[in-house]
Simulated scan of single mutants.
Amino acid sequence: MGKIEWAMWANEQALASGFILLTGGIVGVAGQFRGWEFAAYAVGQYCFTVCVKAFGPLTRNYYVRAFLHAAVCVPGGFMLATVLGCVCLGIASLIYLVAAIRGEHWEPILPRKEVRKPAAESIKNPPQNPPPRPPPEMRRKRVEDMEGAAYDNPISVTADE
Rank of each mutant, 00 (worst) to 15 (best):
A14T: 03
L15R: 07
L15N: 07
L21G: 01
L22Q: 04
L22A: 07
G24R: 01
G25T: 01
I26W: 04
G31L: 12
Q32D: 08
F33V: 14
R34W: 13
W36A: 05
A39H: 01
Y41M: 03
V43N: 00
V43I: 11
Q45K: 00
F48N: 01
F48V: 02
V50A: 05
C51T: 12
F55A: 10
P57Q: 07
P57L: 06
P57R: 07
P57H: 11
R60H: 14
V64R: 02
V64L: 01
V64M: 03
H69Y: 00
A71I: 03
A71F: 02
V72M: 02
V74D: 01
V74M: 03
P75D: 03
G76I: 00
G76L: 01
F78K: 01
F78L: 06
M79V: 07
M79C: 05
A81W: 04
A81E: 05
L89I: 00
G90K: 00
A92P: 00
S93T: 01
L94F: 07
L94Y: 09
I95E: 00
V98A: 08
I101H: 09
I101P: 08
P108D: 13
P108N: 14
L110P: 06
P111E: 08
R112H: 12
R112L: 14
K113D: 13
E114P: 06
R116Q: 15
R116A: 13
R116G: 10
R116Y: 12
K117P: 09
K117D: 11
P118M: 10
K124R: 15
N125I: 13
N125S: 13
N125V: 15
N125M: 12
P126K: 07
P127Q: 09
P127T: 10
Q128L: 14
N129A: 11
N129W: 13
P130E: 13
P130S: 12
P134C: 06
E137L: 10
M138T: 09
R140C: 11
R140E: 13
R142A: 15
V143F: 15
E144L: 14
G148F: 08
G148P: 06
D152N: 12
P154I: 13
V157I: 15
T158S: 15
A159I: 14
